[in-house]
Design a protein around this nucleic acid. Structure first.
Length: 421
RNA sequence: GUGGGUGUAGCUCAAGUGGUUAGAGUGUCGGGUUGUGGCCCCGAAGGUUGAGGGUUCAAGUCCCUCCACUCACCCCA
């Protein structure tokens, strides 16, 4: 019979890797917590309308990548392709803007996009999102970026590139859009097929096209950064000087674009060379109009998303630091000894010790092998002889020394020895 | 959605131009003195060669179709 496999683009995270995820999540909780962010747990399904309105009707995500279906109640639902929209929805739905002027939230969980899988790209992938609402102060932009970099460093990623840009606001972007559209329209013939299409849908996207011909054209085209309005210019400068106060090297990439429509002003991206074509491990930006567009009060915000699969792939987390090893293995010989081991082993566990044993009635040799393989520091040898004499043998697997250990008080003796390790 | 690459044991891979019962390493299990791990030695289990069809006396090998995985385009975390 043919076995059933996981759905394409959906992955299992097995033990060995799952511990690394826990490590990364633990660091995030710790550092985000220090910066005053609190966790919000969100549903994975939302009304389709939420994403259509926030992400943008003409974006690739909405046009062709969403897992959308009609529920039995004739309602169109979508498995979230990103988290910011959901955070905004919850922010509005629960009136969080009323309880506090500044709201800092983070959330961890799976996102879904029906793209063709490749290295670093999956149909279900996990993101770690942080969103800060209620301030348009540029220092907040720098603070959020600083938090991201601090987190990345805490998991050992120190050599990633931080790129920032400004995408302008409703005051300056439309004007630039016209300029660039006009400029590129004149050079239309030199553009690739995709870019000719983008000309009418999303001209800004042409800036990060990888086709050589387009790159050359774009190299001489005007940049949005040159057309920023006074407010945006000032904001962008302030973000940069904010970052300079800390040890966070960055570079301005005037050609960086974001895939979602709601971004304004600050946009940033963290990339690494170790991931193949999908080189972004984190990306984010400011979205000052998003809440209003969803029908809420004026609530400027900024946030970012970290791709956990990608981060875990590049974070140098040694196995030894995260994979648990039992402290004690109880090798039991014979039915009676096994019964004793059953009780002792579980009592130790209930007291917080990492103990392991074997009920398979296997030879002492096999059990020693297992103890060694599990990486146990000690093995307690418990046979009929030891049971009779009420004294087991505690073997130190490091130096192969053995000492007798009274059975009547074994539990406490062992806990004492393990606690001094 | 479009290209390229790859599918043989749980894992990593072998099997000149088609030719007996498809091999090795590793892992698993057992053994090498009676009750003692690592190193070494021996043995066992484990395969519908991704699936289906075709050519042939004969297909893991050649042809076709499908599927899966993978890398890239696209897009993005």
């Amino acid at each position: 019979m043919k076995i059933i496999t996981a759905v394409r683009g959906f992955k299992d995270i097995l033990p060995g890797e799952s511990e690394k995820w826990q490590f990364v999540e633990g660091k995030a909780r710790e550092i985000f917590g220090n910066f005053g962010f609190r966790e919000i747990v969100l549903p994975i399904l939302e009304k389709t309308e939420l994403f259509r309105r926030s992400i943008g009707e003409t974006t690739d995500i909405v046009e062709k990548e969403m897992y959308t279906f009609v529920d039995r109640g004739d309602e169109s639902l979508t498995m979230r392709p990103e988290a910011t929209a959901s955070v905004m929805r919850a922010y509005l739905e629960h009136g969080l803007y009323a309880s506090e002027s500044l709201v800092k939230l983070y959330t961890i969980g799976p996102m879904f996009r029906r793209e063709r899988p490749q290295k670093g790209r999956f149909r279900q992938f996990n993101q770690l999102n942080a969103e800060l609402l209620g301030s348009k102060d540029p220092r907040v932009d720098a603070e959020v970026i600083l938090m991201l970099i601090t987190f990345l460093r805490s998991v050992g990623v120190a050599d990633a590139r931080l790129e920032i840009n400004s995408l302008g606001c409703p005051a300056c972007r439309p004007a630039f859009r016209e300029v660039i559209h006009k400029d590129l329209e004149e050079k239309r013939d030199g553009l690739c097929e995709d870019c000719r299409r983008r000309l009418s849908t999303n001209p800004l996207r042409i800036f990060d096209c990888k086709v050589e011909g387009c790159k050359a054209i774009v190299a001489t085209a005007p940049l949005l950064i040159e057309f920023l309005c006074g407010e945006c210019r000032e904001h962008f400068d302030a973000v940069q000087s904010g970052l300079r106060l800390f040890d966070t090297p960055f570079e301005v990439n005037a050609r960086m674009v974001r895939g979602l429509d709601y971004y304004t002003k600050t946009a940033f991206e963290v990339t690494t060379g170790a991931l193949g074509a999908q080189n972004a491990i984190a990306g984010g930006g400011r979205y000052d109009r998003l809440v209003e567009e969803l029908g809420g009060p004026e609530s400027p915000g900024i946030g970012f998303a970290v791709g956990l699969e990608r981060l875990v792939a590049v974070a140098p987390i040694p196995d030894e630091t995260v994979i648990p090893r039992p402290e004690l293995f109880i090798a039991a010989l014979g039915k009676e000894a096994q019964d004793f081991a059953f009780v002792l082993c579980n009592r130790l566990r209930m007291k917080g010790a990492l103990a392991e044993t074997d009920y398979g009635a296997r030879s002492l040799k096999s059990q020693m092998k297992r103890s060694d393989k599990l990486g146990c520091r000690y093995t307690l040898i418990l046979g009929e002889r030891e049971l009779r004499e009420r004294k087991a043998l505690l073997r130190d697997m490091k130096d192969s020394s053995q000492q007798p250990l009274g059975l009547d008080d074994a539990e406490n003796t062992i806990l004492g020895i393990l606690s001094t390790e």
